[in-house]
């Protein structure tokens, strides 16, 4: 989007750098903007796409999902779907698609900070169980505890079918 358009989008600018109160030409232009982007049809199309994408990620939960034994496939799929949904909301509902270049100034540094923030947690938090004290190893839950619980559920030690 050109500088020329940016200027036009906000009407006359006063000496102090304030945007001037809406003038006739400003309203006219706003009306033009209303026609040029958005519009009921487009919003409904985005809405339909969002619903379809939600159904797609929900599909990983259904028994028909072919990769039930490989959770990573489902995770990658769901994240891709979520990012697509986020893009649709940001671009169309938040009107970022039609904004001037300032959008990059505000969103890219924040997004980079966000990524670094998460990465910096990996060594101390993500890898916290690589080396643990013996005492902690003793008390923390392990996959074997889940197995133990499952076996207990199947064993019917009490000689009576519980509500499994």
């Amino acid at each position: 989007m050109s500088d020329h358009h940016d200027h036009a989008a906000h009407g006359p600018i006063t000496r102090t750098g304030e945007l001037s109160p809406p003038s006739h030409s400003h309203e006219d232009h706003d009306h033009g903007q209303h026609e040029s982007h958005g519009g009921l049809g487009q919003y409904l199309a985005v809405f339909a796409a969002l619903c379809a994408l939600t159904t797609m990620s929900f599909f990983t939960y259904s028994p028909l999902w072919p990769w039930r034994d490989q959770p990573h496939v489902g995770w990658a799929f769901m994240m891709a779907v979520s990012c697509t949904k986020a893009m649709l909301v940001v671009l169309f509902f938040m009107h970022v698609l039609w904004e001037a270049n300032w959008k990059y100034v505000l969103t890219i540094p924040a997004a980079m900070m966000a990524i670094f923030l998460a990465l910096m947690l990996v060594p101390d938090v993500g890898l916290r169980n690589r080396m643990v004290s013996q005492e902690r190893a003793l008390h923390m839950a392990r996959p074997s505890d889940v197995k133990l619980m499952e076996r207990a559920g199947e064993a019917q030690v009490l000689g009576e079918a519980s509500a499994h």
Binding site: I13, T14, G17, E99, A100
Partner: peptide, 10 residues
Amino acid sequence: LQYQPGLPLS
């Protein structure tokens, strides 16, 4: 002379 704000938004 006309001044323009750094970011063209309200």
